[in-house]
Design a protein around this nucleic acid. Sequence first.
DNA 1: CCCCAGGTAGGCT
DNA 2: AGCCTACATGGG
Length: 276
Amino acid sequence: MKYLITKDKIEIFDKSEFNIAHILECGQIFTYEKQGNSYAVFSNDKKAVLTEDESKIVISTKDTAYFENFFDLKTDYSLIKNTLASKFNFLIPMLEYGSGIRILKQDKLETLVGFIISANNNIKRIMASMQFLREKLGKKIEDYYAFPTLDKLTECDEEFFVAAGLGYRAKQIVKALFATKQIDLESLETLSTSKLKEKLLTICGVGSKVADCVMLFAYGRQDVFPVDTWIEKVYHECFDSSCQNRDVMRENLVQKFGNLAGYAQQYMFYFKRTSK
DNA sequence: CCCCAGGTAGGCT
DNA sequence: AGCCTACATGGG
């Protein structure tokens, strides 16, 4: 993909490889705002504004190197899509529907918190809770708030998280944050996928699906396949209408898609959740 | 009133 | 090990 980095912006000239709305609205990130024709994206303490015209996408930010990695600009998505399309014909309409999706490389703590909140919840409410945490606990930077630090988050009690709209997850998040302090999320980067998952599963509020999402969206592991209520619907339509066990579904899907599982999952999820 | 939303923890066999 | 169910909250 052709792009150009200057001091305060990244310009992307291949619009078929980068669709702003698809990337942000495909359910992988809960910390962005649509502002008219542009989108503001927040990651940890950083911000980028995305706009487009006839010929290019522009990512405006002070942290160009960070967002080059964040938006996974060095990965060739046309190659991934071609490989998936040739092996799995049934994916072709979904690959076209979600054209320009890229899997983001997000902040680990922010992703963990977001997906613990996501359990049995809907995306609109998850985004509102994440925004609440930023505004109440985050450092103010120019016209936005950073995501709160782990130290700041662990100062809060259950009651605070209920006010943030977490409902019954408030109790879990207090435990999870305390556990996260002992673990150090950054230090897990070098673990194998299975060891990493094992570690993440020890955190309260983190089950198999949340662990898979954190690994896919924050640790850059593509050999995982998060199975949620939407993927379950696709599975019933495309593979086995009688299977009710998500562990079985996940194992079959990882087996089937291998190291492209994470990409396949995201196209399937986005298609099922938003089309028609 | 019901069911659903990017499920999980805890209790039961 | 596997099944069952309660769980806060807001929207359809």
